[in-house]
Each structure stands twice: as structure tokens, then as C-alpha cells.
Design a protein around this nucleic acid. Structure first.
Length: 450
DNA sequence: TTGACTCAACATCCTTTGCTACAA
DNA sequence: TTGTAGGTTTCCATGTTGAGTCA
């Protein structure tokens, strides 16, 4: 029996000369369409299916484009932990996720992996900014043209960098063309739509890079299926002091003003009252999701959610935080500071009050570049931002971070901390201030992210 | 080529103690 | 008796991004 494998529209088509439908359907992951009689499997099962067919003694007529090998080399000298991470990935059969802190040189490891594999490679990244950074790195490192999907360009080369969005749009087409896919910030692959990217490529070798693999919604399990398990992780604290700056986290509790306290208690009370009287218990994010759905048809649920929103606004944007920030700015006159908030309104308030340049999603690309450039050169020593600079942007190094407000996300916190961890020329310590409104739900939020 | 716009997608959003029906 | 799963169906608000369209 000869089995033919081919890539077709993001799936793997499985044909046999004497069409034995039952035999085909018995292959793991293969489904037979009863009308057309064609058998298909998700593209990412390609390597696995080849192995199974081999075990079952079938002849395989493999028409998936076999990626030609490239001749690549690199001058990079890997640090010990980078070498260990790469070895762990090889030992896992070139499938898996490396969890390393921001600034630990994930790109370098990926480049070494590309050299070791020397097959056509797609690098998938979440933002245009990262697309450009990767492209520059790869062009500097390799003597071959680098392709690009995204940011207004659609050029395929043996080594191509793509945004997640473009990879999703092109997967139908090019899903069979690569031997290795590198997913930068691989936690994004857990998004419902993005998971398809992992499914629609045949690449047997897969490398995921992230600073925080686990997702609160559990979708890292899907990533494990698509890319491989977490095969290596190193913690910030393992590298701090040597490869990253040593740091301190200082938590500062502030009180609400009497007027804020009154409004907070009233709003939070409305929310808690609703929970008590509706018999709804909130133990997980999905419970909260139920509440949101309920708010679609239950006016009391809607009012409860709006009240919760008001309570959040009050505690996250408390006046006393602004006063505390003034002191911190005074104390760190000579330092380079990034201030983070959860809401853009507060960003603009702080920007006006302290004359600090602001960056939010509303800041155009050109202005954003200019501000960051001046920050890099020292013209500005402070920047205030909401979530824009959390990830996927090349932010010049600072040594003080002030988290005025944030979410309970461990990922967000890790990324913000990462912004001050580049090793300091003078060997100095970095510091992160975390401002928390006392006796509010923010205390819970703050402990969740740590 | 650029800028302004729209659109779809993604992420976070939650809290400590309880009701009800059903299966083991 | 004890333990466990649980429903309604597309979703309150805010922040952010990339792609696409059009002038």
C-alpha cells in the first residue's frame, strides 16, 4: 500500500492508491470526508503521521515540499544557559518552548537553532516593531535575503519573518514551505484564532520563545500540543546580578481620600451585593465570564459590572498615587524612569502634571519613535505609558519603573520589570515601585501578579 | 507613500464561600 | 450520603494591535 501525502489549503491530504477508507481513517488524527472520500489531517501532524506510516509499513509518497537545506553559520558565542536551552530543545526532538526572561538573549538562541536546523524557516512575531527588529538581526547575521509577511510587504524567502496576523492569512498558501517555525512571544499562539497558525504549517521543527509560558486561561496546553512542551526555563532571579541587573521591588501602600473611600465602598458594595443575592460565585475567570454574559439580559448584572468598573477606576487612579509619584520622581532626579498605568486617562493627566512625554495607543508611530529615540539619547529621562510598552517594542533601558496601576496579569508584571533589567554599566541596582491602594481589591490584584 | 479611518482579534475583567441537581 | 458539575444563546468596559481601504 502506498500512501500519498500532500499539502493542500492548510491541511494535509492523505491518499492511497487502492482507497481503503477504513485503513486511512484508523490513522491518528486523520478524518475521512464521507462525500468526497478524501482523507485529511491537520498540517501540523505531518511529522507524526510520517512516523506512524513508517511504523505500519506503508510506502509513503511524500509530496509535501521537502525544504531544501541551507548553508548557514553564525559567530555568536552562546552563554552557558543559552547553550543549555538550545540543547534541551534538540533533546526534545526540536519541538518545544523556552521560557526565558526579557533581555536574556532569546533571539540569539533562535538564530543558533536556525543555523543548526539549516532548513527554510519562518519566524512569527506579534508586532511590526518586532518584525523589523528580527529582520535587522537576521540580515546582519546571514548572507541570504530575508523575506517578510506583514507591515505592507509580502515577500517570501528561505528565511522569512511574519506577523501572527499575516502568518494566519498566508498559512493556506505557504504552510507547507518551511521546515522550522520560530514563534516569538509564543504565548500569543494560545489565542483562539492564532492556534490555527500552529495547525496549518507542516514544519516538523518548532521553537517557541516567551518570558511567561503559562496562561491563566489554560491555553498553554494547546500551545504544548502545537509547538511542544516547555523544555527549558530560567527565572529572572537566576540571571539577576550576572546577566541581568540586580533589582528591588518596593511596594508602596497608599490610602484613598475620604471622598474616594466613600465612592469606592458604595460601588464595590453594589457589586458584592449582587453576587450575594444572585447566588453567583466567582472563583475563576470563567465564572466572571458567566457574569458578563448574564449582564446581556439581566439589568442588575449589568449595573453590578458597571459598579465594579467604577470601583476599579477609583482604586487604580487614586489621588494619593499621584502625590506618591511626585515624591518618587523627586527622589530619583538623576535616574531614568518609566511610569506604567492601566488607563490612558491617567497617562495624560500625569503627562500634563509632571511634563513627562506620554506614549499610548493613540500616539502615532512617528511620534512614538521620536520620544523613544530621545529617551535613548538622554534628552528625556522619563516616559509615562499605559500598556503600549509592555511587549513587542524596543524600549531603551531605564533603571526605575513605577507601576502606578496594572492588572493582575503575571505576564504584564514580568514584562514591566523586564524593562529595567538590562545590566547597568555601573553595576547599579534597578528598582520597581508598585503603588497599591490599601484596603481595596487592588491588594488582591497585586498579589496575583507576583 | 502617508495618514486617517474601520474592523477583527486579543487580553484583562473575579474572589473565599454558597445553591441545586444529579451521579457514584 | 458524598462529591461534583453546573445553564442562556455572541460579550458590561478599556487598552492595544495589524490589516485593509480610501483619499
Amino acid at each position: 500500500m502506498t500512501v500519498r501525502l500532500s499539502f493542500e489549503n492548510g491541511t494535509l491530504r492523505v491518499d492511497a492508491d487502492e482507497l481503503d477508507v477504513e485503513w486511512l481513517a484508523d490513522l491518528p488524527g486523520v478524518e475521512v470526508d464521507p462525500r468526497s472520500g478524501t482523507a485529511r489531517a491537520p498540517a501540523y501532524r505531518y511529522a507524526f503521521l510520517r512516523a506512524v506510516l513508517g511504523e505500519r509499513g506503508a510506502d509513503v509518497d511524500d509530496r509535501v515540499k521537502t525544504p531544501a537545506s541551507l548553508s548557514l553559520s553564525t559567530d555568536y558565542d552562546l552563554r552557558e544557559y543559552q547553550r543549555d536551552a538550545l540543547d534541551a530543545w534538540h533533546d526534545a526532538g526540536e519541538r518545544g518552548v523556552l521560557e526565558l526572561p526579557t533581555g536574556s538573549g532569546k533571539t540569539v538562541i533562535a538564530i543558533a537553532a536556525i543555523v543548526d536546523s539549516s532548513v527554510p524557516t519562518l519566524v512569527v512575531v506579534p508586532t511590526i516593531d518586532l518584525l523589523e527588529q528580527w529582520r535587522r538581526e537576521l540580515e546582519a547575521e546571514f548572507d541570504v535575503p530575508i523575506g517578510q509577511f506583514g507591515g505592507g510587504e509580502q515577500v517570501q524567502e528561505a528565511i522569512t519573518v511574519s506577523t501572527y496576523d499575516s502568518a494566519y492569512l498566508r498559512a493556506d498558501d505557504v504552510g507547507g514551505d518551511f521546515g522550522l517555525v520560530v514563534f516569538d512571544e509564543v504565548h500569543h499562539l494560545g489565542g483562539e484564532g492564532y492556534q490555527d497558525i500552529g495547525r496549518m504549517f507542516t514544519a516538523p521543527a518548532r521553537l517557541g520563545l516567551t518570558a511567561t509560558f503559562e496562561r491563566p486561561d489554560g491555553a498553554h496546553e494547546a500551545i504544548t500540543d502545537l509547538v511542544g512542551p516547555n523544555v527549558y526555563d530560567v527565572d529572572v532571579d537566576d540571571l539577576a546580578g550576572e546577566h541581568l541587573a540586580a533589582y528591588d521591588i518596593k511596594r508602596v501602600e497608599v490610602d484613598l481620600t475620604p471622598e474616594e473611600r466613600e465612592r469606592y465602598d458604595e460601588a464595590q458594595g453594589t457589586f458584592v451585593d449582587y453576587l450575594r443575592t444572585s447566588g453567583l460565585s466567582l472563583r475563576s475567570g470563567s465564572d466572571y465570564q458567566k457574569l458578563v454574559m448574564r449582564s446581556g439580559y439581566d439589568p442588575r448584572a449589568r449595573e453590578a459590572l458597571l459598579a465594579k468598573q467604577r470601583a476599579r477606576d477609583i482604586m487604580l487612579n487614586a489621588d494619593e498615587k499621584v502625590r506618591e509619584l511626585a515624591e518618587i520622581l523627586q527622589r530619583h532626579r538623576e535616574d531614568r524612569i518609566i511610569v506604567f498605568t492601566a488607563h490612558t486617562n491617567l497617562v495624560y493627566r500625569l503627562s500634563e502634571r509632571f511634563l513627562i512625554p506620554a506614549i499610548t495607543n493613540e500616539t502615532g508611530a512617528k511620534e512614538r519613535r521620536e520620544i523613544l529615540e530621545r529617551f535613548r539619547e538622554g534628552g528625556y529621562s522619563r516616559v509615562v505609558t499605559a500598556n503600549v510598552l509592555d511587549e513587542g517594542v524596543d524600549v531603551p533601558d531605564a533603571n526605575v519603573a513605577v507601576v502606578l496601576s496594572g492588572s493582575g496579569s503575571e505576564r504584564e508584571f514580568t514584562q514591566r520589570l523586564g524593562r529595567v533589567l538590562r545590566p547597568k554599566a555601573d553595576g547599579g541596582r534597578a528598582v520597581l515601585y508598585e503603588l497599591v491602594s490599601a484596603e481595596t481589591a487592588e491588594e488582591g490584584i497585586a498579589s496575583r501578579r507576583r
